[in-house]
Design a protein around this nucleic acid. Structure first.
Length: 532
RNA sequence: GGCGGGUUGGCGGAGAGGUUACGCAGCGGAUUGCAAAUCCGUGAAGACCGGUUCGAUUCCGGUACCCGCCUCCA
């Protein structure tokens, strides 16, 4: 049996993972508030814990792992969006508009996370489905003296739980010194947090012993984890920013409501994702969504690869460059393995790397070793286990070739062969470049062949620019090439060396990779006509 | 102010107290009309100052800088 070791935030140490019940390993991960598209920061824990889920399934068996990730569908931002729609003239009730918003957001979330190759959890409970469980949990807390009702609110009495702050390494007294908490007059202690709050007529609410209202944010995870995983379970995960106060509050509520349970044994927190050195956050407005990246032609699998290149406990900076490197590498793996059958068992070193506190970077290194060793069958099975090279990723690495494209490609390809036979190598190189910018890579040799691939795009554009300046006049002018590239979101600039001289090299940036062969570019072959 | 994390070669990014991380890019070579793919080879690092040690990029202390949490956020 593989020994999994995980860094437990609770103890701040890397510990051997011993499940409570190997026949039912239980994990809870805090999911999204469903009010808008998921941004890239949301994707990091999804992918990280997906790897853990896959590892647990590998070690304990797919049927012996229960993974729960919630949808927070009670939230003021959702209400705000629903109200906005109502004010914009929609006739439906607020409830209906809220429902509409959460449904569409959940569908987006599923589509985007599926694209990243993340498996769906076993349960995806919604807060609105567990209001009753939350109410009874709150009632229990009041009965035991851990919470109190006042002015329609119910507050958790932080002082009643001696270990409050243990997870995040804070003490209640220190935090009060900071005094950055909302000091409501009805609070016994400034650190007390809301379990239930009243809803006025304009807001969604549920009847409760304390009047019509809605739950505070933290209680939902405690209630849903209890209902679906029991009073003790193995792993609780989420972003580091949730450690305090969200997870601290979850622990306090759960420990007080179910004193015989241990709640989560292991706490895992992924570090934050940054963009240009700054945390991606809604308030800074520097965030972009997973969908944005997908629409820019960065496949979900590539995003996944970039996210997993960095260990989950380190901050990671999203860089465009990292995505293009990853794309290149994954493309090679795809071409090497597409006709290969995965061979089990999964490579032990990959599993070992993952079992060592999810060292995904090390695991990827091992995949690279397998690729280099041409162990493609093992590469495929190990990559599959990490959520790579799966058929569900789609053939992003290969442009679509329809019949029209195929005949155009064949025509240019054969024309080029003729020029080669005539030893008109300038024409032959020009046609190679034409094919490459259109999405076709050709390989000479004993059996000349072509493959639909974007791998040669940059090279092709550079070559076209070079040729445009060769003075022969056989091909389109520099201006024409420039125009074509710009129309395709490709920026080609001359390179400037460190003495500030313009060199004869070209720098190419491709911003938008099409998903099909560019037949328009293939027509550039017409410029040189047939061989004389 | 309180608490926590980070600083590795041109870029990204790991592990390990002593032996090549790895990828991308670069350079040299094989191969090729030229390429591609592939293969072989190669240079390049550990913020700063001390300490422990036979030996530290790796452990300890300090300094600087960066980042996060403490307020909705993964």
């Amino acid at each position: 049996m593989v020994t999994i070791r995980l860094t437990n935030s609770k103890t701040r140490r890397k510990e051997e993972f011993v499940p409570l019940e190997p026949s039912n390993v239980r994990m809870y991960v805090c999911g999204p508030t469903v009010y808008d598209r998921a941004h890239l920061g949301n994707a990091r824990p999804v992918v990280v814990f997906d790897v853990l889920y896959r590892l647990l399934r590998h070690v304990y068996g797919a049927g012996h792992v229960t993974y729960v990730r919630n949808f927070t569908d009670v939230d003021d931002k959702i209400n705000a969006e629903a109200l906005r729609r109502q004010k914009a003239g929609r006739p439906e009730t607020l409830e209906a508009l809220i429902h509409e918003r959460t449904e569409e957001t959940i569908a987006w979330y599923h589509a985007d996370m599926d694209a990243l190759g993340a498996l769906r959890p076993d349960h995806e409970p919604r807060a609105t489905e567990f209001i009753g469980a939350m109410v009874s949990m709150i009632e229990g807390l009041i009965a035991k003296g851990h919470a109190y009702a006042v002015e329609g609110h119910v507050l958790f009495r932080v002082r009643s739980y001696a270990e409050y702050g243990a997870l995040s390494g804070r003490s209640v007294d220190d935090m009060i010194a900071g005094a950055r908490v909302e000091v409501a007059p009805y609070k016994e202690d400034p650190m007390d947090f809301v379990l239930w709050k009243p809803s006025d007529q304009g807001l969604p609410g549920w009847d409760s012993p304390w009047g019509r209202g809605r739950p505070g944010w933290h209680i939902e995870c405690s209630a849903m984890a209890y209902e679906l995983l029991g009073e003790s379970f193995d792993i609780h995960g989420g972003g580091l920013d949730l450690q305090f106060p969200h997870h601290e509050n979850e622990i306090a509520q759960s420990a007080c409501a179910h004193p015989h349970g241990s709640f989560a044994k292991v706490w895992l927190h992924n570090e934050m994702l940054q963009v240009e050195g700054k945390k991606m956050s809604k308030s800074l407005g520097n965030f972009f969504t997973v969908r944005d990246l997908l629409e820019q032609g960065i496949p979900g699998e590539v995003i996944r690869f970039v996210l997993l290149m960095t260990h989950y406990r380190s901050p990671m900076d999203w860089r465009r460059r990292a995505a293009s490197d990853a794309k290149k590498e994954l493309r090679r793996w795809w071409f090497a393995t597409e006709d290969v059958k995965a061979r089990l068992p999964v490579d032990g070193e990959v599993v070992e790397a993952l079992a060592n506190d999810l060292n995904t970077s090390d695991a990827i290194k091992r995949l690279r070793d397998l690729y280099k060793a041409r162990e493609y069958e093992l590469l495929k099975s190990a990559a599959n286990m990490m959520g790579f090279l799966l058929p569900s990723a789609g053939e992003w690495y290969r442009p679509t070739v329809d019949d029209e494209a195929r005949s155009s490609i064949e025509a240019v390809f054969h024309l080029r062969q003729k020029f080669r036979q005539l030893r008109d190598y300038a024409a032959s190189d020009y046609l190679r470049a034409v094919l490459e910018v259109a999405g076709v890579v050709i390989s000479d040799g004993k059996q000349p062949s072509w493959t639909a691939s974007y791998a040669g795009q940059e090279r092709g554009w550079k070559k076209l620019h070079d040729l445009a300046y060769d003075g022969s006049g056989r091909w389109p002018s520099a201006e024409e090439i420039e125009g074509l590239s710009r129309n395709r979101n490709v920026i080609v600039t001359s390179l400037i060396d460190n003495q500030n001289n313009v060199t004869d090299e070209w720098n190419v940036m491709i911003n938008d990779i099409p998903d099909r062969i560019d037949i328009g570019l293939l027509q550039l072959a017409g410029f040189i006509g047939g061989p004389a």
